Amino acid sequence: MLAEAEQVIHDRAVVACEAATAAGLPGSFEAWREDGLLAVLATAPELRFLRTISGVTEVNLTQAVRLAGSSCWEGDRPALVLPAGLVPHDSGLVPDGVRPIATLPLTKFPPVEADIDDSPDVGVFLRILLEGYESGGAVTAFMAAEHADPRLRRSLLIEDGVPISAAALSSHGPGVLLGGSATPRAHRGKGAQARLLAHGLAAAAREGQRFAVATAVEGSPSLSNLRRAGAEVYARQAWR
C-alpha cells in the first residue's frame, strides 16, 4: 500500500507544480519519475521542503542516492524519503525528520450530518484555507495556486451561514489524496476538520475510489483525526 500511496502523492505533486508554473510563481517547479523514483523540485528557498525523492526501495536506493547528487538540484540536494528501516549507508546523509503517510481503505461511509458546500467560491475557499494554515510568502502563494486548480475538489464547512473550515481532495488512479485541510484559529476545537474528513471519505467511496492517502505532521491534530478514522500510518524517514 505504501508504494501506491506514494504514487498518489506524486501525482498530486505534478498537479501542484503545473499549477504553480501556470500561475507564474517565481522559480522552477517540476515533478518527474526516474528509475522508479518519484522526484519533486522547487527552486524557491521557502519551498525547500518540497524537494524530495520518494518511491525508494532496496532495489533502487543506489540510484536514489545518485539522483540526489545530480546537478539538477543546483547544489541544494533534496531529501530522500525512505520507508522505515531502509537506511542509506555510507552516503553521507543524516536523518532529517519523519514524514508520515496515512492510508485508509475506502468502504461505505455514513453520510455526514453537516452543512457542507462542495462548490464554494474559490476566493472564499482560499481565504479560509490560508487563514487556517497561517503561512505566508512563497508557501502561501504556492498553496493558493495549487488549491485554485480545477482538478481539485474543494469543500467548506458552514456553521450559521459562516464558512469555518476548508478541505480539498483530488483523485489519482485508484486513490484519492486528502489535502489540504485547515480551520482558522477562531473556529478550532469544534471537530470541523474531522467532519470534512468524513465527508471527503464518503464522497470518494461512493465514486469507487479504493483508498485514501494523506500526509500530515507527526503529532498534529490532522494525523490524530486520520488515526481515529482508521488510517494506517507509515512513518517514513527523511534523509539529507
Rank of each mutant, 00 (worst) to 15 (best):
E4T: 06
V8Y: 00
V14H: 05
E18A: 12
E18M: 06
A19H: 06
A20T: 08
T21N: 10
A22Q: 02
A23Y: 14
A23I: 09
L25G: 13
P26W: 03
S28C: 00
E34R: 11
E34M: 09
D35A: 04
G36Q: 07
L47V: 07
L50R: 02
T57Q: 12
V65M: 08
C72Y: 05
L82K: 14
P83I: 14
G85F: 13
P88N: 11
L93Q: 03
V94T: 13
D96C: 10
G97E: 10
R99A: 02
P100M: 06
P100W: 07
A102P: 05
T103Y: 00
L104T: 14
P105A: 11
V112E: 10
E113A: 11
D115R: 00
D118L: 02
D118F: 02
V122A: 06
V124H: 04
I128Y: 01
E134W: 02
V139L: 04
V139F: 15
T140N: 06
A141P: 03
F142I: 04
M143G: 04
H147D: 11
A148F: 12
R151C: 09
S155T: 12
S155D: 09
D160Q: 13
V162L: 01
P163L: 13
S165E: 01
A166H: 01
A166Q: 15
P174N: 12
L178M: 12
G180D: 08
S181L: 06
T183P: 00
A186I: 12
A186K: 15
G191N: 06
Q193G: 13
L196Y: 14
A202H: 05
E207L: 15
Q209L: 14
R210M: 04
A212M: 08
A214K: 00
A214V: 01
A216C: 11
A216R: 08
E218A: 15
L223Q: 11
L223K: 07
L223H: 05
N225W: 08
G230V: 12
G230I: 10
E232W: 10
Y234T: 02
